[in-house]
Write a protein that binds this DNA or RNA. Sequence first.
DNA 1: CAGCATCCGAGGTGATACTG
DNA 2: CAGTATCACCTCGGATGCTG
Lengths: 133, 133
Amino acid sequence: MTTTGRRSEGQEFPFDVFARACPSRGTLEHVTGRWGALTLGALYEGSLRFNELRRRVDGVSEKMLSQTLHALERDGLVLREAQPTNPPRVDYELTPLGREVAERLLSLIHCVEGSMDAVLRARERYDETRGAR
Amino acid sequence: MTTTGRRSEGQEFPFDVFARACPSRGTLEHVTGRWGALTLGALYEGSLRFNELRRRVDGVSEKMLSQTLHALERDGLVLREAQPTNPPRVDYELTPLGREVAERLLSLIHCVEGSMDAVLRARERYDETRGAR
DNA sequence: CAGCATCCGAGGTGATACTG
DNA sequence: CAGTATCACCTCGGATGCTG
């Protein structure tokens, strides 16, 4: 009865990220990308200016932050508010949609952070047994 | 009172993904990477063999799937079970830790899939106003 | 079926310099 | 401050061919 057969039960979405051509893949990549995830996570706690964000997301370059913010803004996840003052002041904040996404993202991030002890141990075990090869 | 000041309230982790050198960044990238996310999502519904996985994660190449699985296995998120039959049969399944991560990942994926209508509309608006430039 | 080795091109990424 | 522009690198990732 399911036309796609992608999930065990009910709950069908018109978009399927498992399908190669689905536009949701692109958005998922913006959201989960190296800098996208951290940017959304940082903005969850409140709006930030460009350079504040840059400091918070340790290691990001101007270029990549700019690029990341553009993609997220275009997807409707981040709102850009420029005040025509001098010096210029631009605030970035999450849209309601962005908050929903960021919430789930942070849940994932915290889960990973909280699991790192186990992950590190798993790596040691893995490298021990197979690393010698 | 917070030593790091990274979160508004309580709940401190020894690992901070916002710090450039934190090992959790690497794992987060394995998990959220283009193929990592889809692989974990696919395995959430049950163990799969290599080529089943390959079909499920539409568009992934052998090389990338293999590479992705190795990274996830090393991080202790995926379990690889090879049966010494002929032809060989290898099953991949999530570890308990992998399930926790995948659960959150799927929540995020579903959130994105369910938001795509809004995202697509946001893009149109964005391109309309700024695209002409 | 389940992979690994190799090659090769596109594009992601960072450093630097410059603008309003 | 808040970016854009340019360049050079170098990794990601696909295609191909081969093994057990």
